[in-house]
C-alpha cells in the first residue's frame, strides 16, 4: 500500500461529479454501513463500491489498497470473534477461559465489523482518488462554511487513512512475531505502541498540508470576494445523486428502527 493516496485524474463520470456530492457520498456510505449489522448487505455495499471504482477507472489503486486492508480486517474480525460474549457457544479453544469462546453471534459480529471497516475506508479512498484536494477544500469552505485551516486539516486526515491502517497492520504483525497478545493491555496501551510509529507519518502529512496551504495562500486564497472562473456549482446530476444518497440513508434508518 502506498504511503498516501492521491487524486488520479482519469476524467471519468465519477470524477466530473461535484466534490460536495462525493463527500456526501462518502458520509452516506459511512452512515449506512453503521446502520447495517448483517454481513450480506455489507458485502453487497462493498461490491457496489468496487463497481463504482471500476466506473471511475481507479480499480487498480483501490484494489491494491483493499488487499492491504484485508489483513487489518482479518485482525479486526478475529478480535471480535474471540471476545464477543453473547450467543450460542460453538467452541471454546481454552476451556478454562470461557470469555474466549467462539459464538455464532460473535462470528457474525466479527465479519460485519471487518466488512464495515473495509466499506468505510474504501468509500473514502474512492472520494480521494476521484476528487482533487483543491476542490474539496473549496467545497468545504464555500458550501459548508468550514474555516479553511480546518479544511486543510480534514484533507490531511483523509490522506492519512491508508498509512495509518498499514501501520496498524505492521504493528499487529510485529507483536504477533514477538508472541505478544495483540489484545494485551487496554486500548490506551495499544495506542501508545502505535503512536511513536505513526508520528513521523503524521508529521509528513501535516507538512504536506502546510505546503499546500502555503501554495494556496501565497496566491491569494482566503481573501474576501472570491470569484469563479467556471462556476463550480453542483449540477443537475449532482442534485440527483445527492437526493438518491439521502433517500438511501433515510431508507436504512427506517429499516433499522
Amino acid at each position: 500500500m502506498s504511503v498516501s493516496i492521491e487524486y488520479i485524474p482519469t476524467g471519468s463520470p465519477v470524477h466530473r461529479l461535484h466534490a460536495l456530492t462525493k463527500l456526501i457520498f462518502a458520509l452516506a456510505v459511512l452512515t449506512i454501513s453503521m446502520l447495517l449489522s448483517q454481513p450480506l448487505p455489507l458485502l453487497l455495499l462493498f461490491f457496489s463500491l468496487l463497481g463504482i471504482a471500476a466506473l471511475a477507472s481507479v480499480s487498480q489503486e483501490i484494489l491494491s489498497a483493499v488487499k492491504g486492508l484485508l489483513k487489518v480486517a482479518f485482525f479486526l474480525a478475529l478480535l471480535q470473534v474471540f471476545f464477543y460474549p453473547e450467543g450460542t457457544v460453538l467452541f471454546a479453544p481454552i476451556p478454562s477461559l470461557p470469555g474466549l469462546s467462539v459464538t455464532d453471534q460473535g462470528i457474525i459480529f466479527g465479519i460485519s465489523m471487518a466488512l464495515r471497516m473495509m466499506v468505510i475506508v474504501t468509500s473514502f479512498l474512492l472520494f480521494l482518488t476521484t476528487t482533487p484536494a483543491r476542490s474539496t477544500v473549496l467545497s468545504l469552505v464555500e458550501y459548508l462554511k468550514v474555516p479553511y485551516d480546518y479544511a486543510f486539516l480534514f484533507i490531511t486526515a483523509l490522506r492519512f487513512i491508508p498509512t495509518f491502517l498499514e501501520e496498524v497492520r505492521l504493528i499487529g504483525q510485529a507483536q504477533e512475531a514477538r508472541a505478544h497478545d495483540f489484545s494485551g493491555g487496554g486500548p490506551l496501551a495499544r495506542l501508545k505502541t502505535i503512536f511513536p510509529l505513526a508520528l513521523p507519518l503524521v508529521m509528513i502529512s501535516l507538512q504536506r498540508a502546510e505546503r499546500m496551504a502555503m501554495a494556496m495562500e501565497t496566491r491569494g486564497f482566503g481573501l474576501p470576494g472570491r470569484t469563479y472562473y467556471r462556476t463550480e456549482k453542483p449540477g443537475a446530476v449532482d442534485i440527483m445523486v445527492i437526493v438518491a444518497l439521502l433517500s438511501a440513508v433515510a431508507a436504512a434508518v427506517l429499516l433499522r428502527f
Binding site: 494556496m216 496566491r219 491569494g220 482566503g222 481573501l223 470576494g225 470569484t227 469563479y228 472562473y229
Partner: peptide, 8 residues
C-alpha cells in the same frame, strides 16, 4: 485561474 478567482 486559481489566483484570479482568489483575488476576485
Amino acid at each position: 485561474a486559481f489566483g484570479l478567482e482568489n483575488t476576485g
